[in-house]
Simulated scan of single mutants.
Amino acid sequence: MDTKLIVTDKPEPNELGVIGESLAAFNDADVGPSERRTLAVLVRDEAGALKAGINGYTGWGWLFTQWLWVDESLRGQGMAGRMLQAAEDEARARGCHSAWIDTFNPVAEKAYTRQGYTVFGELPDFPIGRTRKFLKKKL
C-alpha cells in the first residue's frame, strides 16, 4: 500500500469524524463501550445571557470536565463549586464512580481542591512558566 503523510491545521470535519469513530470502535472492541455522553452545566442571568458553564462528558464510569468558565461578574462567589457539584450529581446519576479535570491556573486549582479533587499528575512548563495539573475525585 502506498501512503502519504499530511500535516495540516485545517482538516475536514469528516476526516476528524473518521478518526474519532475509528478510535471509538477500536476502544469498544478492546475495553468495551464507553457509553460517552456530553454533560454541560449552564448558568444564565435574568436576560438569558450565558454567564458560566461547564462542558465535559461522562464515559467508562468517569466524569471529565473539559472546560469550566465563570464570567468575571460571578467569580469569587462559589459558582465553580456549585457547577462542579451539579455535574458530579449528574455523573453519579449516570453511574460514574470518579471525576477528573486539569488546569494550569492556580486559582482554579484551589477551587477544585476545595471541591475535593486531588492532584495526581503534573506537566511543568505547560504553558511556559506554569504547571498543568491533573486532578481527580472519587464520586
Rank of each mutant, 00 (worst) to 15 (best):
17 G>R: 13
98 S>K: 11
105 N>K: 10
77 Q>T: 10
46 E>Q: 12
61 G>C: 06
122 E>D: 09
94 R>T: 02
84 L>N: 04
41 V>F: 06
137 K>H: 09
89 D>K: 10
116 G>P: 06
123 L>Q: 10
106 P>H: 12
130 R>N: 12
49 A>L: 02
37 R>K: 14
99 A>E: 03
77 Q>V: 04
107 V>L: 07
110 K>P: 00
71 D>I: 04
77 Q>A: 12
59 G>C: 10
78 G>F: 02
13 P>L: 04
10 K>I: 04
27 N>K: 04
68 L>P: 00
129 G>K: 12
113 T>R: 10
71 D>G: 15
37 R>G: 09
119 V>E: 11
101 I>S: 00
66 Q>L: 02
66 Q>T: 07
70 V>M: 06
139 L>G: 05
36 R>L: 07
128 I>P: 15
136 K>E: 11
139 L>D: 04
97 H>T: 09
30 D>W: 14
9 D>R: 11
52 A>W: 02
13 P>D: 09
134 F>R: 14
35 E>V: 01
17 G>S: 11
91 A>T: 01
125 D>L: 11
28 D>H: 10
2 D>E: 12
57 Y>T: 02
13 P>F: 07
139 L>Q: 02
126 F>E: 03
102 D>L: 09
121 G>H: 09
131 T>P: 05
133 K>P: 01
70 V>L: 08
23 L>P: 08
24 A>T: 07
117 Y>T: 12
45 D>Q: 09
12 E>W: 13
63 L>T: 01
6 I>A: 06
48 G>W: 09
103 T>R: 05
51 K>S: 12
125 D>E: 15
99 A>S: 14
29 A>Y: 09
118 T>L: 13
137 K>V: 09
103 T>S: 10
25 A>K: 14
118 T>K: 13
37 R>V: 07
39 L>F: 02
117 Y>E: 06
18 V>I: 14
1 M>L: 14
131 T>H: 10
48 G>Y: 11
47 A>E: 13
44 R>T: 10
24 A>N: 07
75 R>L: 03
112 Y>G: 03
122 E>L: 09
90 E>N: 00
1 M>A: 15
49 A>V: 05
40 A>G: 08
134 F>V: 12
123 L>T: 13
50 L>Q: 06
6 I>W: 09
110 K>V: 07
55 N>G: 04
58 T>N: 08
90 E>K: 01
56 G>Y: 02
53 G>D: 07
130 R>S: 13
